[in-house]
Design a protein around this nucleic acid. Structure first.
Lengths: 250, 250
DNA sequence: CGCTTACTTGAGTCTGGTCAAACGGGGTGG
DNA sequence: CCACCCCGTTTGACCAGACTCAAGTAAGCG
């Protein structure tokens, strides 16, 4: 069994290690109190586990505490498009929570630990904690912004620019949340994931990544990419990265 | 001058013609009262006017009342990616309102009429009107969902599938808001817009659209596309369209 | 030790890009 | 009123980036 559910109480929100990170805005004490009851427990899943399934209605709301996951959609004939990646501090399942049916799936890239929230109390969150409600909108708008950038990438960048953008993006985002403190970062991906994110075939993806490796910007392992030089990647892609201020975190 | 600003009072929210449409959820009377003060006026712009500019901080919050617009991003060398289209009832400028700097631009495809909201009272909206706050998040999540679908399209569909998807999508969405009551719908686009949405060159876009025309699904005019058969387009693209329930509208 | 998974590489093909030219309608200035 | 121009669309010829097919390597695991 790849799911392990731990009833609440394991890690108190007040002790949440993510909360201490500079990247996240602090809670008020009222918010903290609410969150401690809003959180019903934790979920541990193995690598390669599908957490949420396109078409299902049983969507829960989670925050990813540690590990790495990705969202994707499928066409009927199996073509897959990876939409975005989830890293510590990211909310998972908001679309499903608000609008019912999931229209994408979520799968883990590593072992993942999640906070599980009580979906039925969303109304209460909005009614009693406007700050948290604002945060929910903020988080959704941030995701939208990221998708905008990905759309630009897939639509208008060349293969090597896309690859450079993706790797720079993942490195920067994971550094923000302290996923990879050590420099350089190692991203837990296969080339198939990269291909399905960039909208390229796996063969062409391989040839493109080899070019980036030949330039010395990355090194590729089995199931992993070491990014050795973020800035040149960013520059090659033409990505205007924006410094992100403190962001909310549920 | 292509901007015309009309101070509040022109059209009372209580008389809002969009509000009557079945597609939108009704306001409570408290919400309505708030909206009437939250709305500071209306803005009329001509076709081809840039309403919001990437990189600017002066973003306002609008709802599009009538007409057609689109959001886009540019690469430094001028390559353009259209991200999504705005139709009556759609909120414009949420990202900019919440997060400061605009990271995309917005331009009108037709003459457009907008509701202008008082950005500074967003806090009050969250504090006093949880239903509206919830709607804001819902709207952001809906946009996210649409971007997911676009990403799948650009990343994994062939040229003709992409074109079919886009035209089916625009037709369905515009019908929902009553933009085009008359069947068949006419979409106010140039082939350059289609190309920049699909991530294709304009030449190849033209050849692809001619194929759809030869199949009898569409007819193309100067600056316009008549969609004659939505269902075949939808089917060709493999888009699993989802019936949208009543949606919020600010 | 054999099987599976992931990465690599080469050869040939094809979708989609680039370049170039032409057409037609609408608007404008002479 | 007409000539011209501009914008958007159309088409053909040629090119190249990306795809498919195929085969091979290397590491991990039961």
């Amino acid at each position: 069994m790849s799911f392990t559910y731990i009833p609440a109480g394991k890690v108190e929100c007040s002790e949440c290690p993510l909360r201490r990170l500079h990247a996240f805005r602090p809670f008020t004490s009222e918010e903290l109190r609410f969150m401690m009851s809003f959180k019903t427990g934790e979920l541990l899943i193995n690598r390669g586990t599908t957490l949420l399934v396109e078409g299902s209605h049983s969507a829960h709301l989670y925050t990813l505490l540690s590990g790495f996951a990705f969202r994707y959609k499928l066409l009927e004939d199996g073509r897959r498009q990876i939409l975005n990646y989830a890293m510590p501090g990211d909310l998972i399942g908001l679309q499903g929570t608000l609008m019912g049916e999931m229209q994408h799936s979520v799968e883990s890239l590593t072992a993942v630990r999640l906070c599980v929230f009580e979906r039925g109390r969303i109304e209460e969150l909005y009614a009693r904690h406007p700050g948290l409600a604002y945060d929910m909108t903020w988080i959704a708008a941030r995701e939208e912004r990221i998708l905008d950038e990905h759309l630009l990438s897939i639509g208008r960048r060349t293969a090597i620019e896309r690859a450079a953008y993706l790797l720079a993006f993942l490195t920067v985002k994971s550094a923000q949340t302290g996923y990879a403190q050590e420099e350089p970062a190692v991203l837990p991906l296969t080339q198939q994931h990269v291909a399905d994110t960039l909208g390229l075939s796996i063969v062409h993806t391989n040839k493109t990544l080899r070019k980036l490796a030949a330039m010395g910007y990355i090194r590729w392992f089995e199931r992993g990419c070491e990014v050795r030089a973020v800035e040149p990647l960013r520059q090659l892609s033409g990505w205007r990265e924006e410094a992100e201020p403190q962001r909310p975190f549920l």
